[in-house]
Amino acid sequence: MEMNASDIKHTPFPAAGTMTDAEREELRRHGILLTSLEELYNWGRSNSIWPIQFGLACCAIEMIAAATARFDIARFGAEIFRPSPRQADLMIVSGTVTKKMAPLVVRLWNQMPEPKYCIAMGACAISGGPFKQGYNVLKGIDRFLPVDIYIPGCPPRPEALLNGLIQLQEKIKGEKLTGPNAARHVRSDVNNEHPIPEYGAHDLVPSKNTALWSPPASPTT
């Protein structure tokens, strides 16, 4: 039987949002796998996160331990540590960020292509940690970079890093490609480059990126 192309009736594909998870699950049980481009794309991305090979301090040792045979970060598709920021998807800020190091961390972040994610690993990267009172210690990398996942610990165990990675995968899987809540890397109205602080006479100039970070209201006042 011959068929003309004009004979094929195109039925519009239902938008991913219009079908409930229960309905999809029902279809899946009958052997019909439905997905959306968004889901497929996010699934692929979340399972091949390449971190930048970038150890700062003590936490870097636990990061290496997470990559070795016992903890085996390869199970989550994130074992390919890239020495070049141009090839990396994820920056694990693993350790104390000093003020001398902060401009370089921001520069590395700017050199990474989108989509990119940032994990603040350990107390120091989150808030300065035990070294908070140091004059040369940055009190949290979130003063200069948008952090996706915070992993507390000093240092966090490799399992904690893996858990943080799984959380990041969940986050990536939930990202939207269209609409007002679209992910950062598909939007044109978001500035992905962050200004690099300069070395000043007493401190970094500026000492924080006010576009990204402002002090939350103190819980005590």
């Binding site: 908070k132 009172q133 000492s207 103190s218």
Partner: peptide, 14 residues
Amino acid sequence: PDDYEWEPTAHDEV
């Protein structure tokens, strides 16, 4: 330098 804007910490001195 004074960068103690917000300190969720247990350090009394901080």
